[in-house]
Design a protein around this nucleic acid. Structure first.
Lengths: 195, 195
DNA sequence: AGTGTTTGTAGACTGCGGTCTATCAATATA
DNA sequence: TATATTGATAGACCGCAGTCTACAAACACT
């Protein structure tokens, strides 16, 4: 499974990857996804354009990698804290994600866009980004159902889709993705008023 | 408010717009959004490239217009049929939309993508495409609430977001957008199991 | 007819993403 | 030291979206 180099060869510049990713994030924040050119990134990182393409296939790949590196920290799965209700845990988890999205929202939207006309990239994006978060929410909802915070008969996977769909919808539509949204989502998922 | 031409001038070719839109839809179906070039469309429509840019600003604008023309028919608001439950009405409405999406899903995904890095286009897309459907669903849900099919305390706007978010999420993720999804969504919205 | 205005056509041009090639630099192995 | 291999660099190159220019064509008004 591990990559096998046939023999020697010139080793990759150890600093290049980091420099490129930093340059990417910097320019991304300054100018936004659409206006950042590969040439500019290469230039900022003091590297040839081809060096960049040696490591990533497309602009989207690179940006995904750069964003993912810094975003990885935020995506820590919430450990089950028995002192808190699952509802509160989910609320906090969403708020945490949303807060980060309001920082990197624009580039992430650009990534979603890139995922639409590139099958390979969509797979990577789903695997690295979407699925893990989906699982965290689903697990949390299951715990809530086991503890009786959510009725037995409810469709957890559909609720999970509701949660994710709601913030994707807001994100893509350009609507605010903030604490209020998090509270509204969680409130409606956990406490649908009775008939 | 009405556009005022100062004087005469050569009139626009009456057939051009239609020919361009038809060519767009044809090539779109044959090759998909990414592979369709403006040049190819102009060629297929027997028109100069510039003529096309005289009428639409970008490729996305043109495609939106072309798709919207044929999709307009599908988006007829469901009139309130007192013989049917609102639940059934919503179910049928969604099925109708989903069936259409499975035809034009790919180009529409491309439009969503295009909307991400173009503010002006996003506004048009929201106004022409998103908002009308959002309103139809919201109205329907309100009727359901008035008739008692949905509990008074529930947040209609959030439910509407759930509905739309769910199918956007499925659409963008490449998951099937079919009758089953429609039923699951509607079922969970109308009949959350009681605690 | 003559003038002004708008559209259509053809083609050059710009900018960017991405590919490809030739050449040089840095490593391992013999 | 010689060879093979891999990475880095610079620059040419392609395709496409979108712009711009020059000119011809079709209208209204005088």
């Amino acid at each position: 499974m591990t990559e096998q180099k046939k023999s020697g060869g010139r080793p990759r510049d150890a600093e290049a990857a980091g420099a490129i990713k930093s340059a990417t994030l910097k320019l991304l924040r300054e100018h936004g996804y659409a206006k950042v050119t590969i040439a500019a990134i290469a230039n900022e990182a003091n590297v040839a354009r081809q060096t960049l393409y040696n490591r990533w296939n497309t602009k989207a790949d690179l940006v995904l990698d750069a964003i993912f590196e810094e975003t990885g920290h935020y995506a820590a799965a919430p450990t089950d804290d028995p002192n808190l209700t699952c509802q509160l845990q989910l609320e906090r988890f969403l708020m945490q994600i949303f807060a980060h999205l309001s920082e990197s929202g624009a580039p992430i939207r650009a990534l979603i866009a890139a995922a639409q006309d590139d099958d390979a990239f969509r797979d990577v994006f789903k695997t690295k980004f979407v699925k893990p978060r989906e699982k965290m929410v689903t697990d949390l909802l299951k715990r809530a159902q086991n503890k009786g915070e959510i009725a037995q008969g409810r469709d957890i996977s559909m609720l999970s889709i509701f949660v994710h769909g709601a913030f994707w919808y807001a994100l893509l539509g350009g609507d605010p993705v903030d604490d209020d949204l998090a509270k509204s989502i969680v409130g409606e998922v956990f406490h649908p008023a009775q008939t």
